[in-house]
Design a protein around this nucleic acid. Structure first.
Lengths: 233, 233
DNA sequence: TTCATCTCTATGTCTAAACTTATTTTGGCG
DNA sequence: CGCCAAAATAAGTTTAGACATAGAGATGAA
């Protein structure tokens, strides 16, 4: 093992990864079992197990009881995205954060959002439209529905003072979230709020979060044109 | 612990998550240390450790030596995306997969791509443009650069027969990948290849992969209008 | 042959105990 | 009072050993 690393398990991860990348172990090959690797690396089997589980999670290895561990043939590419908090993202870029609530009222749920939130169409929820600015330039517009059934107290909050996101995140941890990325041509309203021309391509993030009481909130975020979301693996 | 679950660690994960969601433990609170929880749940400390590490990875807990474990105040939202293999995605949708190579030649690297691949501008790489179809409708267009320096043998491959993605994935596992999502208005060429009108909003995925020899490939994928990429957490 | 059942094996999980290490707290010293 | 060193603490890691369990392969009956 040429790798030096903080932990033995990490060293094994690196070494196994190297063997795969260097094609000593090829796609589809069965690799030695945990007990053998434990002897080879001079560690306990539990340590090998931990390392191989990490690599399996990463998608490089396929592990099955009795069948052993194989190098994945067609590794599906996984990537972890971190959805930053708007305020933090803007402030990290050295700009001044501000936001403006365009509308806040109770409205009946449209069908599309109702489906996403698994709530009956027409149910009255809090509907919020907000623009977030970095300096004096619009950064993103959000169109949010909040379910007071799962987030009691939401009716009484003044979302001019605290952003809906921050209030929700602080008060209603969620169990599960659905997310979807897509691209849309800016509508007249999007364009006006983002101060861009109608039709420009916008990255859209649609996110719905749930706790044990049901859907907490569903939000559609439209980023300013040119915005790029980064992920690594 | 009301949760029944396959493993003790998973049961602890569920129970701790419940306590957080039910606000028995609030954002910022310090939770009992591993030893105490081990006693409470009647398991070994290593089992509690495993459970809490999972929750920390998920972003619900902050752990620091000596300082203890706290409920994260502003959990940054993480999501795991799986980038499917085009062929599999199309075939799963019950459509027939096909692809057409529009161009395959050696060309000097433009500056933008060179920066992404950490290669000198002007270096000659293999440049490939491909359209992937589901049935008779274009599904995505890819514009790919392949570095034979990190992927030897690429010059000799006929990418009409096997897609570049499949050939690369089968032969050159990577160590690291950069990914970026954005939205662009379809250029005249994009529009023609995707059989849509110029200017329609396209979801763009830009991905560059590296092995120990450097950048293997950098690809820009433009999805057909309306395409949505899903993630859950 | 084909199907059901048994056996065996490699991974999955857990434990108790020890040691390591980052970080906070404390307490002494100037 | 401020600074630094020492002590204490909670998480991080590893180990040897044990038992659980999925599932591939062997065996045998119909």
């Amino acid at each position: 093992m040429t790798e030096r690393s903080s932990s033995k398990a990490q060293a094994i991860v690196s070494e196994v990864r190297r063997r795969i990348v260097d094609r000593e172990w090829r796609q589809g090959d069965r690799i030695p079992d945990e007990a053998e690797l434990a002897v080879e690396f001079g560690v306990a089997r539990a340590t090998v197990n931990k390392a191989l589980q990490l690599l399996a999670e990463e998608g490089l290895l396929d592990r099955k009881r009795r069948a052993g561990t194989h190098v994945t043939v067609n590794p599906a590419r996984k990537a972890t995205l971190t959805i930053p908090i708007v305020r933090e993202q803007i402030e990290q870029a050295g700009m001044e954060y501000s936001h403006r609530v365009i509308a806040q009222r109770r409205s009946p749920l449209p069908a599309e959002i109702a489906a996403r939130m698994a709530l009956p169409e027409g149910r009255e929820l809090i509907h919020l439209r907000t623009v977030h600015y970095g300096g004096d330039r619009p950064f993103q517009v959000e169109d949010r529905w909040i379910n007071p059934g799962a987030a009691p107290g939401a009716e009484a909050v003044d979302f001019q003072r605290i952003t809906a996101n921050e209030w929700l995140v602080r008060n209603f941890p969620w169990l599960h979230a659905d997310m979807a990325f897509s691209a849309e041509n800016a509508s007249a309203r999007d364009a006006r709020l983002l101060e861009t021309r109608q039709g420009s391509a916008l990255l859209i993030l649609q996110r719905t979060t749930f706790n044990d009481l049901g859907a907490i909130t569903s939000v559609r975020v439209a980023f300013h044109p040119g915005y790029t979301m980064i992920a690594t693996h």
